[in-house]
Design a protein around this nucleic acid. Structure first.
Lengths: 135, 135
DNA sequence: ATTAGTGCAAAGGCTTTGCACGATA
DNA sequence: TATCGTGCAAAGCCTTTGCACTAAT
């Protein structure tokens, strides 16, 4: 999801929205307070209220996806319309890795069919210890 | 996880803990306020504070598992040490269906190995519309 | 001028905690 | 009696919202 694609959705882009979009291209996975801290450290004055309003608007317009990893705060990430992925989350350093597995995707579709269930979305999160934290 | 198994973990069982355990065998997936409402409707006076204390203790002792489905409240379910399963969650009636797929389990292990990642736990949630809500 | 965005402070909702009371051993 | 469990109310934390002010068109 780049700026052009966002504009095509008819979403007006303020300076704050642009700044947040830019952050996502750098950091990929962010929560509201991280956005708050990074931007304010850059000298960009923005309130948490505005950040939540932007994130909610982005979520409504399918620009970002909201994740409830096993943390207190919600984590957000840019949606790439051409690609879906799932997550490996390190429970020590909270790093988030991404992976894609077509077999799993297909198996989920089979499971839904077997249960007469219409899939709207799914989330597969694997929690554990990443390579950097193993040593 | 039955009462005997809980006792073997060295967890002392009060009346309230027993009542909550019993609820889980009936309802499988419960949040704190549901437990509160059901028990108090049964004439069992219990406070939300106690419920949260019991649930936290159960979680610490691997008696229940805490799920963050895409709802505001956490959902809890009894752990069955001999069986793991994942969830189909209806976004309309909030019913929770369970499924188990060994292929997916194995694929996750492969993914973890490929990423030098040590799995501690995982959660696979499929959100959508269940059969009852389709009509 | 009209509309949309923003900050601040307050409020909301779930969850946790301090403290005093009650139950249990 | 000493310990543990409990209720109540208050506090905590993330998130949302009301309101007045500012920026943009």
């Amino acid at each position: 999801m780049n700026i052009k694609q966002v504009k095509e959705k008819g979403v007006k882009l303020t300076k704050h929205k642009l700044a947040i979009l830019e952050l996502f291209s750098l950091y990929k996975h962010l929560d509201a307070s991280q956005i708050y801290n990074i931007l304010n450290n850059q000298g960009i004055h923005i309130s948490l209220a505005t950040i939540y309003r932007v994130l909610t608007s982005f979520e409504t317009n399918a620009i970002v996806e909201k994740h409830n990893f096993n943390t207190e705060q919600a984590t957000y990430e840019l949606i790439n319309p051409d690609e879906h992925h799932d997550h490996l989350i390190c429970i020590q350093c909270h790093k988030v890795l991404e992976f894609l597995n077509e077999n799993i995707e297909q198996l989920q579709k089979d499971i839904a069919i077997n249960n007469n269930f219409k899939i709207v979305s799914h989330s597969l999160n694997i929690y554990g210890i990443c390579n950097d934290c193993t040593s």
